[in-house]
Nucleic acid binder design. Sequence first.
DNA 1: GTAGGGTTAG
Length: 271
Amino acid sequence: MKWKRKVWRFPHAYSLVICGLCKEGKSVEGYAVFQNLARKGCKANVAIYTALIDSFPECGNAGEAMKIFQRMKDEEFEPDEVTYGAIVNGLCKTGKLEKAMEYFQLCRENWIAVNAMFYSSLIDGLGKAGRVDEAEKLFEEMVDRGCTRDSYCYNALIDAFSKCGKIDEALMLFRRMEDEGCDQTVYTYTILINGLFKEHKNEEALKLWEEMIDKGITPTPASFRALSIGLCLSGKVARACKILDELAPMGVLPDTAFEDMISVLCKAGSH
DNA sequence: GTAGGGTTAG
């Protein structure tokens, strides 16, 4: 007698739990829930696998993500552009750029839609590895390949430029962003404020901060951090304190704002 | 029929 075991799908509530845990960065817990059901013969799906693949590199375990990717393929699930996007992003984040480029190439050869997320991950990874020329090349080729550049791609390249001392190129991109109708975000401003202070262009940095506030873009703890550190290190501690006071009622300041400033000043004073 | 994706700094 032939006996085929019935395969159940993951109950929706469990999918929500797994995806929720993954989003919170609790990939190990999410994976445990997945394993429990999988052992009982439940079949997951592409969305659950993708959520797991996406969350492991976040907690520093890219190898685990690749294992889950393999398991997904062994179970004959077809990875789609979201799955590959998570793979490429995870590889870029962990510095495995050659592998990331291989998957990128594989997607293009197999007609899997390569979108702006692939590009922003690669541009960011290349930039952080100091391979700015390659990052720029990818950025420029996007339009030829019919992919619209979004703020993530711009921000990644602006960051790459400002970190390797090409602040003027970064500023040019910033203006080009405006011309192309791509929204400048609080990330864009934070990257540039950091970059300008690094080049001791303090007034320009402060001007950008004001431009950001005028545009109605809400500052984040990170953006204030960039501003206050820059101001403190250029001797404008009072100015930083004043801005801090103004921002306090908005509830956007990090709890450690004053501590951060003090520690920056101590560090600067100690050598 | 459902569920999945990316950026600042340290």
